[in-house]
Design a protein around this nucleic acid. Structure first.
Lengths: 211, 211
DNA sequence: TTATAATAAGAACAAATAGAGAACAAGTTT
DNA sequence: AAACTTGTTCTCTATTTGTTCTTATTATAA
């Protein structure tokens, strides 16, 4: 996403000050107040530090409507979480030789709204190591948005040869569909487009470390 | 819903004054009374602030029958109640230089029960690449079970030098604590055990592929 | 050494915010 | 009726605040 912005000593000190400030205050401090708190005499100098924090993504870019320096809220919108009905069907293991349509829905799983789209989604459990270079490991769960099309480069769940569902990166040409594993030690596989049915595209992933 | 009306300093101060006033009084204060209470000399200026509070929905629009400035009765907050069972607090980004205890809980997040333990858990967002060999990438979310101990080989969130929270593999000996990144290109770091405070251990992980 | 980055102070400026006071209409009190 | 209170609107002015610039000083790297 954003580039890496290492903090200098002073920037770190200022960020600390802000975090501490917000632990016991609701109001966004002004540059002058921060100056006083840190023993600085110039708003101008402080401002440059703050700007660096903005670039680092730690502080919100100031807007004309609302003065004061405020930390960036978490990107997650807390509002979205109150939807009581964000469960989606769990369809079992991927790469198990069944068209997904045909599968009965085993159960439903509660997932954070951040991991799904507005469209119909379902959860599959991954088998195998074909996507480890993307950080998708054996037994991980993936959230798939149900779809029958994709763009080149998308990670998709596809039914191959009417027999097996796999998770791969897709490259499509008019007369060929290539499924590329995210694993250096595996080879891309070439198919007739008729033998590859796209089931959906990857939108989220989960892993449990509990034994 | 209604638009967002951020409060300025003065508006906040005035609102606080009103709240305090109603804690020990039934009567609605007039503009002049508020002026006196706040050391203002002009009703006109105060009135503009009050109007903003009305727009923000905090103060009732005045009517001719009933003079005085009165707060809007507390409305039902739909945010608060809906099953808090499988939501856990989101505490912000990891590796950002604050003890977790000290951080205010930004918001709560719904997670599948499979990703947490029975004990107290919270969510952090990962910054950096120090755990990529374990498939934990920049911007992933990790679920941490709150704990102050761990076993060798556990992945833990730890506060280092009272300054920075990181996610690492831990190796402990009586007189040394080693934090090992899961990244071939990074070196293990050695610490005095007193300088490493364990905050919790990794129990789950999530990633969103939605742009 | 030279060069570069970090830090600091202060001047100047525009926009946002805050304040004072005057005037007025509708109600209340005397 | 006259005097006063109260919410409202208006104009004018003052202060605060984020921003940009220029100028120094110090520390660190080449």
């Amino acid at each position: 996403m954003s580039d890496y912005h290492p903090l200098t000593r002073k920037q770190h000190e200022i960020y600390q000050f802000l975090v501490k400030h917000y632990q016991h205050s609701e109001t966004a401090p002004t540059l002058d107040e921060i100056c006083i708190g840190l023993g600085l005499k110039s708003r101008g100098s402080l401002h440059k530090h703050i700007q660096h924090l903005v670039e680092a993504g730690l502080v919100e870019p100031s807007n004309r409507q609302q003065r004061g320096i405020r930390l960036t809220p978490p990107q997650l919108s807390p509002m979205l979480d109150i939807n009581p009905d964000d469960t989606i069907p769990y369809l079992g293991k991927i790469a198990a030789g069944q068209p997904l349509e045909a599968m009965a829905s085993f159960s439903r799983i509660t997932i954070p709204t951040q991991l799904k789209t507005k469209n119909e989604c379902y959860v599959l459990q991954v088998t195998g190591d074909s996507m480890i270079d993307l950080g998708i490991f054996d037994n991980d769960w993936v959230i798939i948005e149900k779809r029958n099309y994709a763009q080149n480069g998308d990670v998709i769940a596809a039914l191959v040869n009417n027999d097996e569902v796999t998770l791969k990166i897709i490259e499509q040409t008019p007369n060929k569909t290539i499924l590329i594993p995210a694993n250096k030690s595996m080879q891309p596989m070439h198919f007739d487009p008729n033998n590859v049915q796209i089931q959906g595209i990857l939108v989220g992933q989960m892993r449990s470390y509990i034994h």
